[in-house]
Nucleic acid binder design. Structure first.
Lengths: 210, 210
DNA sequence: TAGATTGTTAATCGATTAACAATC
DNA sequence: TAGATTGTTAATCGATTAACAATC
C-alpha cells in the first residue's frame, strides 16, 4: 500500500492531524497551507509536508491542502473508513468509563459487550450493552467477530486474558492494566500507562527551569 | 540539579524503569546489570546506561545496579519523594474512574476534591472525597494548596477551567479533554488523548505486514 | 503570467548503538 | 588477581529542518 516503512513518530502524529482537521472542517475552513496548519498544530510546515508525503501528494502547489479531502485521507490511513467490533474486559471504573465514551463509537469502534468476573455485575447493562461472565469470553469473541479488546483488568489477569483472546484470533489489544502485554505475531497492542503520564508531569513540575 | 538538558525521550522512559524496578523489588531481586534489565524491559543495555548516566552514576563496575537504590533514585528524579494535592475537574465517568485509582494516592498524589457543574452530583462522595460546585473552585485551590488538576471536562470547558486554575497558581495540568490545553510559562501540562491511542492501534491493525 | 505553495532532496540535528578504558 | 560491568566517548542511524525546483 505505502512505499517504504513509515516511522512510528509519523504514525503517532496522524491522529493529531485528524483532530485538528476535524476542527477546521467544523469551522467550515475549506483549504489550508502547511504554514497555516503549522501555526495551529505546532509542528513545522516542513514536517507536515514530509509527514503527508509519506502517504501521497494530497496537496496542490500554490493552493495548499483541501481540508475535507485531507481529513478523509488521514482517516482512511488510520483505518477509520470501516467499523470494528470491540469488547471491554473488566467492568470496573475504568471499563465503565470507556464503555461510556461515545466518541469511540462515532469513529467506528462498536462496543459489543463487557466482561467481568464479579457475579454482581454480570447481566447489568451500560448504554444497552451487557456485562457478561468471563466464562463466555471465547464463544462471544468468535461469534461476534470481535477484533479489538480493551483490557481494564488488574495487573495479574491482563496477560492471561490476552492469551485467551489471542487463541480466538483477536487482532488488537488496547491495554490499560499496569503491565506490558506481550502479543503474538500478527497481533497488535497499545499499552496505555496513565501513571507514566502522571509521573512525567510530576517530573516537569519539579524541573521546570526554562 | 542535573548537568545539561535531559531529552524528552529519556524522561518518558523513566516511569518504565520505575515500574520494572518495582516488580524486581517485589521479587526480592537485589541487583541487576544493564544487560539483564535490557532483557526484561526491552531497551538496549547501552541505552539503559546512557539514560541513567544523565542523572548520575548509580551503578558499580563489575556489579551492576542495586535494585532498591536505583528504584529510589528514579523515584526521586520523578518527584515521587514528596506528596501533591490534586483535584479532578469533571466528575463524569472518567473523573470518577480516576478518583478511584488508588495507585495514584499510593505514589503521593492525594486527591482533595472533585468539581462538577451538575447540581445532582454536588455533595456526593467518592472514596470519602467530596464533589464540589465549580463556583467554589478558586477558593478551594488556594485554601488546599492544590498543585495538580486532572481535567475531565468536555472539550469546550477545558481551556477556560485551566485559565481559572492558572489564575490561582496551579502548577500542573493533566488534561483528558480532547483538546490541547495551552499553559502559561511556569505551568506544565500533559495532554492525554486516548482516542489517538486507539487510532494508532487501528492503523497497525490494518498495516501489520510481515 | 506572477505568486504561492507543494513535493522532494540535501543538510542538520539529535538520539541510539557500539566500543572500550576505567574500575569494582 | 581475573572477570564483570559500568561510565563515557565515538560512530551510526534516524528524524527534523532547510532549501529550492516544480507546478498549480
Amino acid at each position: 500500500m505505502q512505499k517504504n516503512r513509515i516511522s512510528m513518530a509519523v504514525i503517532r502524529r496522524l491522529p493529531k492531524y485528524h483532530r485538528y482537521l476535524k476542527e477546521l472542517l467544523e469551522k467550515d475552513v475549506k483549504r489550508i497551507s502547511s504554514k497555516e496548519l503549522s501555526e495551529i498544530i505546532g509542528f513545522t510546515a516542513s514536517q507536515i509536508r514530509q509527514d503527508l508525503n509519506n502517504f501521497g501528494g494530497f496537496g496542490q502547489q500554490g493552493y495548499g491542502y483541501n481540508v475535507e479531502e485531507l481529513f478523509y485521507e488521514i482517516g482512511k490511513i488510520l483505518g477509520l473508513n470501516r467499523t470494528y467490533n470491540t469488547v471491554i474486559i473488566g467492568a470496573g471504573n475504568l471499563g465503565q468509563a470507556l464503555a461510556n465514551y461515545v466518541s469511540f463509537e462515532k469513529f467506528g469502534f462498536a462496543l459489543k459487550g463487557l466482561f467481568d468476573i464479579n457475579p454482581k455485575m454480570i447481566g447489568l447493562k451500560i448504554r444497552d450493552i451487557e456485562i457478561y461472565d468471563m466464562d463466555e469470553l471465547e464463544e462471544f469473541i468468535i461469534k461476534n467477530n470481535i477484533e479489538i479488546a480493551y483490557i481494564c483488568t488488574n495487573r495479574e489477569s491482563a496477560q492471561v486474558t490476552a492469551e485467551r483472546m489471542m487463541d480466538c484470533n483477536i487482532k488488537a489489544i488496547w491495554n490499560f492494566a499496569p503491565v506490558d502485554i506481550k502479543v503474538r505475531e500478527g497481533v497488535v497492542v497499545e499499552n496505555v500507562h496513565l501513571i507514566e503520564n502522571l509521573f512525567t508531569l510530576s517530573y516537569f513540575l519539579n524541573n521546570n527551569e526554562e
